[in-house]
Nucleic acid binder design. Structure first.
Lengths: 232, 232
DNA sequence: TTTAAAATTTAGGCCACCTTAATTTTGAGG
DNA sequence: CCTCAAAATTAAGGTGGCCTAAATTTTAAA
């Protein structure tokens, strides 16, 4: 009776915890209780309790006072949720006319209610997309996810040409603002200038070419791909 | 502060109870505890407990030992769920290639997770349909529902021409069987014969015309519209 | 009219998940 | 090495929603 055999039922709450841990743990470090509590808007003791249960279920490894890491099973379950979330976001924007700033909340609820079959049907209808509307990679059905290397706009060197690859889907207001600037994944631009002391970055983009000034905080959350320089 | 003002949050469980009561109460009679328990696959005492809570919330009127009836607010909430369910079923069959026998369970989960906005977007994408794939009328956004008069096939007089209007969405096997016979809402047929003692009904339908024999139990669940006879 | 069967409610308990308050562990600075 | 604030855990308690067993009410049949 292997661990893979018991494809257990996970509560909505458990699914949320796993997805959150996955996202916090992307840096490789164990996820801390307080970060999880923060992300889920829950009191820390609730997290402690749940961590004990999750580790008894073999979904995380919990070293008390140190944090948790997903096990293989936990990671698979988390990636399943991530796939659902991103497929749903893509479907809602592409097929039902949602704006990219309003899909996150809807997906947050739907991801717990859809069946695997529905997810795959949506993916099929979309032509198995690889990225969601915010530029985030969509894990495959078998839990494989691309791990791109991003550089925040705030760190793209002046003079460089880069492409905006990914933005956070969390803040609707920020997304509406980005849309108003024409800043969405896939857009190319050149970094013209950057002021020191966490100052704004100036870029040029679009057709006809236009200059934009982007504040430091916002620039930090705009993840870009820089064309890799030839190694000479 | 009118009762309509407090558009309260309803738990998933509450939504299920209200929808069930609505469906049981269609005859006009109060819904009985045991019927509700039966429909929701729940023990009767659990229902009693919930009835007390629902009546304290003003969603039902509970006369102990006699059953419950929806209040205005309860009925509105129930119809909202019915609309969701039927819009979702229609969307899944029309836009995502689901068969009519598999949409019920999916809708049963999704109806609790979708937002009003998503429901309306789906309805819009479908052109505001009036009936779901099983022929059931879809309530409007404001809670108005058509109440057609049906005659079960088992009671349509021999010699009559009628149209199949509605079938139950509950039993996937029955739905697959009906599909294999070509029996779906909208199909017209003539009743050729019926055996007594709850025997089968024979109908002719289709192009080219074909005869079908339908057992009594199945015939009871096939709701038909008979062209109203001229009053002469 | 009595009384057994059926339906319902009350009583008491369990589980999942959340809370606040108290306690323990950790690790940075003196 | 010691102190102490921050972080995490344990303890204790609440709510929602379900259960079973027992008590009660209704019903319908003898």
């Amino acid at each position: 009776m292997s661990a893979a055999a018991k494809e257990q039922f996970l509560s909505r709450s458990t699914e949320d915890y796993l997805k959150t841990i996955y996202e916090l743990q992307r840096s490789g470090e164990p996820a801390q209780t307080s970060s999880i509590a923060d992300a889920l808007q829950i009191a820390p003791p609730s997290v402690s309790g749940m961590m004990k249960k999750l580790s008894e279920s073999g979904l995380v490894e919990h070293e008390p006072y140190r944090g948790v890491q997903l096990t293989g099973a936990g990671r698979r379950a988390a990636l399943r949720m991530v796939r659902r979330h991103r497929i749903i976001e893509t479907y809602l924007t592409t097929k039902l006319g949602y704006d990219w700033d309003s899909v996150h909340n809807e997906a947050e609820r739907l991801e717990h209610a859809v069946s695997d079959e529905l997810v795959e049907r949506m993916a099929m209808a979309l032509g198995n997309p690889r990225y969601d509307p915010h530029g985030a990679p969509i894990p495959t059905k078998d839990g494989v996810i691309e791990v791109p290397v991003y550089v925040p706009l705030s760190e793209v060197p002046v003079g460089e040409v880069a492409e905006l690859s990914r933005v956070s889907d969390r803040d609707p207001e920020q997304l509406r603002f980005l849309a108003s600037l024409g800043l969405k994944p896939g857009v190319s631009f050149e970094v013209l200038a950057r002021q020191p002391f966490r100052g704004p970055t100036t870029i040029s983009m679009g057709e006809p070419t236009k200059q934009q000034v982007v504040g430091h905080e916002l620039a930090e959350s705009l993840l870009c791909s820089v064309a890799p320089r030839e190694v000479g």
